[in-house]
Amino acid sequence: MLLLVLPAIAIVVLFLYYPLLFIVQMSLTEGSSYLSPAGPIYTLQNYAEMVSRYLPNVLVTIELAALAAIVDLIFGFPFAYILVRKVRYRNLVRSFMVFPMFGALYIAFGMRFLLLPGGWVYNLLKSFGIQNPQLYGLPSVVFAMALFAFPFMVLNIGTALSNIDPTLEEAAACLGAHPLQTLQRVLLPLSRAGIVAGLMLVFGWSVGAFAEPLLLGSINEQRSLAWTLYQRGVVQTDYGLSTTMGIVLLILAFAVTYVALRQSKGVLGE
């Protein structure tokens, strides 16, 4: 029976786990010394540099992902609630919600047109009397990232909410609870697992954001790790440093994913 799973195992071992180990090793070598005929020079220099020189890059990556997760929670909770409790045209909503799935690249690209002088957002702001708005920057990046990950948040919270018996809300209302009290005392505690899982997943997916900071951000947001990693690794062939950034990125993504998976019940069930 293990034979059936073997091809899948082979694929992930050969093309995920081995490469990840490989970049761990690589991150411990200096620059592109791995290539040199004299053999690689092992050093912790790259990690030291991450702290001394690239800490702002790490921080801005975390900041963007965290903001995207929070924005998704704020907008996603009511969305999921209404979807689960009030909406009958759910299939239609689902069809709309696949658009972000097609990729952050198109979102970022499309948003550039919106933010362009003469674009819809630009004109809208102008009609409110805001002249020459600085549209490329943190808000735009966070918006694009949040949009991309929104379905994951809604999925997680929606699953949690649909497991809550609507009678509980009616019971709370009959007992005199204000809707906000019902939210705080019944809905939030009972959907906590879904909320935490949603936050973590969105954060985990967002730390690797590439197109959004690059296309919509200012110099500050463009320091985010995924884009810096690409430049250092592919453009400047500083394998040591870029793999180190990869490891840091991986740790950021995994730490939260671990929490998320512990919160949400596995697909295989009990």
């Binding site: 019971a171 009959c174 005199g176 609870a177």
Partner: peptide
């Protein structure tokens, strides 16, 4: 419902 001060017992204990 909350302004009516009623006691509602549901089919399920809820």
């Amino acid at each position: 419902p909350r302004a009516r001060n009623i006691g509602f017992v549901f089919q399920q204990p809820a």
